[in-house]
Write a protein that binds this DNA or RNA. Structure first.
Length: 730
DNA sequence: AGCCACTTTGTA
DNA sequence: ACAAAGTGGCTG
């Protein structure tokens, strides 16, 4: 007997499945994709549940089943899990897994982005000007992303498109996959590489083709410096998965999904993999989806959205460069693809491999606690070692006022250049000076919207807020007392360092690299190329230089102020700083010659600095965990963020007080904030974060959900996203 | 009031 | 997603 009522989840921002009557003669199963009426129109949805009941009521009817193949239980469970974990509406989570054929005889509808045309709006409003300011750099962004970044709602963007201020652009597609050959001839692995590959293969849950025991799955951290052959090693696990007839997914941060990587894959397997990323659209997208669903495509290499492909027999998930921030999705459903990969792996009973040269702190902790296996590659293939890192104690260096390069570092740069090698001076601060004040009256230039100082950008002759993007002309006279030429720049930014470097090394070629690089992405890429080819002696850069482009001639990294960020009040400051500095210093000596790093600091004994110098990440998190305990901060993997959508920013601010006074936290749970406001919302970029400490295993999401429901309802949608690893909730 | 731009709500 | 209803500023 057929069920009378189907609960259908619709891929819209709805948190509950809607109930429909099942018409006589339609035999539905859970997971079936169906067409249903919704309001005045017809939509698709997925049968999330079936039950018997009095169907004769006022329910509308399911129109039809529209696909032969339904959504498999593990993928449905993933949708449920992600919705629950990220506190996103279930329907939104479903939408990620249901990128259906963009129905009808659709030709080439690739991903659509928008960018500024340069035309002025016919009508200017506060919301519009925010968008125009953000889009002014000419970069292409997704509609949602632009709306969120500008702090406006999507309607504004549409309005600006109609007005001709923004134009839509589509990205071009390429071609589909060939079957990979696991036994394609390839260069042999070294002994240690072979051992590591065996260790990964031993975790595969699919039984070996020739009989024998299967592995037990779980998560393995594959750790090894750049050049140690991580990719070749996990390729062996992929090859074995192919032999065993299960599918593999290799996740990469979007930027790393390059032709170069696909070429390496082709060299190993004699065929191009199916590549999946947001730019792939239309027929190609549909063919890959269908191939994956049918089990005909054994290997997919993709960006984070590949996580939701309907694999038939998923046996292996590899997350390459697992520490990459690009795995975080920040608009729509906020999730971390690395963590969701772990979850999917668990639900599918697939082995998971996390690969990185500089694993994230969360992953290190999980490995140290035995939740993840750990495979470490001893050193770089070819015997290269990590750069030697030393601290420069700034309390002992004699530096004139207004100068920031210590004599020790200056000498090292000169020495390096004399050998024909490059030096990188790293300072994580854009612009010329982080604070401008009037010498006459002491007035400090502050952002009208945020509580931050305006940063001087001498090149642009502007004062800029790095928080909200607000910019104003740098005045000639003090806005407060009117004194002319009284403004002083306090502290260094990269522009100022470049000035100092130019004065100290007048005959050297200096390049400044920062994310606000004038001339946009094209010119930036050209500059990076110049550096790589040796067309420059000294690079001055912000965190932009922490990753990406390889600079083979770079042998010295000087960190100008390692202490930046350590006192930022963000409970994750320490781990963020550690990771950033580890990546930056690791850039030295990637070529033939060995590298070294010098780190200017006023607190060489600080755990983060000490760990960086010793290269002992394990000690760092041990000490950091202890320090957090003393400070009453949550341990790693226990931070949650309450995020109020950008559109409701103003409203949220008005209700901040109310929110802050809401609800008594339940026992064992503590909401962190400044001491004077224990439940305060901490301002982040276009959002508010609320930090929650849990002393026991709790479900932070449902706690927050209750917490919000119990208090006075804040106006608008309050979405909550969790910034932790999911291990503790599995 | 009426208009406009934008936000919020509801869809079973 | 999309359409309908609501909000709040502005105008004359």
């Amino acid at each position: 007997m057929n069920a009378a009522i189907a609960d259908v989840l619709i891929p819209l921002a709805l948190d509950t499945a809607y109930s429909y009557a099942v018409p006589a003669g339609l035999d539905l199963a859970e997971g079936d994709v169906v067409q249903i009426p919704l309001g005045p129109r017809e939509t698709v949805g997925v049968v999330w549940g079936l039950r018997d009941g009095a169907a004769g009521s006022n329910l509308r009817k399911v129109t039809a089943r529209i696909a032969d193949e339904g959504m498999a239980p593990p993928l449905r469970r993933l949708v449920d899990w992600i919705a629950r974990y990220t506190l996103a509406p279930k329907g939104s989570a479903l939408a990620m897994a249901l990128r259906l054929p963009e129905d009808g005889p659709r030709t080439e509808t690739a991903k659509v982005g928008v960018r500024a045309t340069g035309a002025a709006p016919s009508r200017i409003t506060a919301a519009r000007s925010k968008v125009v300011a953000v889009a002014a750099d000419g970069a292409v962004r997704g509609k949602r992303a632009l709306a969120l970044e500008s702090g406006v709602s999507a309607g504004v963007i549409d309005g600006l498109i109609d007005d001709g201020v923004l134009e839509t652009v589509t990205l071009a597609p390429e071609r589909v996959a060939e079957p990979p050959d696991p036994d394609h001839p390839h260069p042999p692995l070294s002994g240690p590489q072979r051992t590591a590959a065996e260790a990964l293969i031993a975790t595969l849950t699919a039984p070996p083709a020739g009989g024998g025991p299967a592995g037990e799955g779980g998560v393995t951290l594959l750790e090894g410096v750049t050049g140690s052959g991580k990719t070749e090693i996990y390729f062996e696990a992929v090859a074995e998965a192919v032999r065993r007839g299960v599918q593999s997914l290799v996740l990469m941060p979007e930027i790393a999904l390059t032709a170069q990587f696909l070429d390496r894959f082709t060299a190993r397997f004699g065929a191009r993999p199916a590549a999946w990323h947001s730019g792939i659209g239309g027929r190609r997208r549909e063919r890959i989806r269908a191939g994956v669903l049918a089990g005909e495509i054994p290997v997919v290499v993709g960006a984070r959205s590949a996580l939701f492909l309907p694999f038939r027999h998923l046996g292996l998930v590899v997350v390459d460069e697992e520490h990459e921030a690009a795995y975080k999705q920040d608009d729509g459903v906020c999730y971390h693809a690395r963590d969701m990969a772990v979850v999917r792996g668990k639900l599918e009973n697939a082995a998971v491999v996390l690969a990185s040269a500089t694993p994230s702190i969360e992953t290190r902790v999980n490995a140290a606690r035995g939740r993840y296996r750990r495979v470490v590659l001893p050193e770089r293939f070819g015997g290269r070692r990590l750069p030697e890192i030393r601290a420069i104690d700034m309390r002992r260096e004699a530096i004139p006022r207004g100068r920031y390069l210590s004599p020790t570092l200056t000498a090292a740069v000169a020495e390096t250049n004399a050998r024909g090698e490059q030096a990188l001076l790293f300072l994580n601060r854009r612009g010329y000076a982080p604070l401008t004040l009037c010498r006459a009256c002491g007035h400090r230039y502050q952002c009208p919207n945020c509580s931050t100082w305006l940063v001087e950008h001498r090149f642009r002759r502007a004062l800029v807020c790095h928080h909200c993007g607000h910019a104003e002309r740098r005045p000639d006279a003090c806005a407060e007392c009117g004194t002319v030429d009284s403004l002083t720049a306090c502290g260094p930014g990269v522009e100022r360092i470049a000035e100092e470097v130019a004065a100290t090394f007048p005959d050297k070629r200096v390049i400044v690299l920062s994310s606000d690089f004038p001339g946009g992405a094209e010119r930036l890429r050209a500059e990076l190329q110049t550096v790589a080819e040796g067309g420059c002696d000294i690079v001055v850069g912000t965190q932009l230089v922490a990753k990406g482009h390889n600079f083979p001639l770079l042998t010295l990294v000087g960190v100008l102020d390692a202490d930046i960020g350590l006192a930022s009040g963000d409970p994750r400051a320490a781990e963020r700083t550690f990771q950033l500095l580890q990546q930056v210093t690791g850039r030295a000596g990637r070529g033939e010659k060995p590298g070294r790093a010098l780190v200017q600091t006023y607190q060489p004994e600080h755990p983060v600095i000490a760990a960086l110098i010793s290269g002992d990440a394990e000690r760092f998190y041990e000490e950091e965990t202890a320090a957090r305990e003393v400070a009453g901060l949550p341990p790693f993997g226990r931070l949650a963020a309450l995020i109020v959508s950008a559109a409701e920013r103003e409203a949220a601010e008005a209700h901040g007080q109310a929110l802050a006074r809401v609800a008594e936290p339940p026992p064992g749970v503590m909401v962190l904030g400044p001491a004077e406001a224990p439940l305060a919302l901490v301002r982040g970029r276009h959002r508010f974060r609320l930090l929650v400490k849990a002393e026991r295993e709790i479900d932070i999401q449902s706690y927050l959900r209750d917490w919000i429901a119990r208090g006075p309802k804040p106006r608008g949608n309050v979405r909550v996203a969790i910034d932790v690893d999911p291990q503790s909730f599995l």
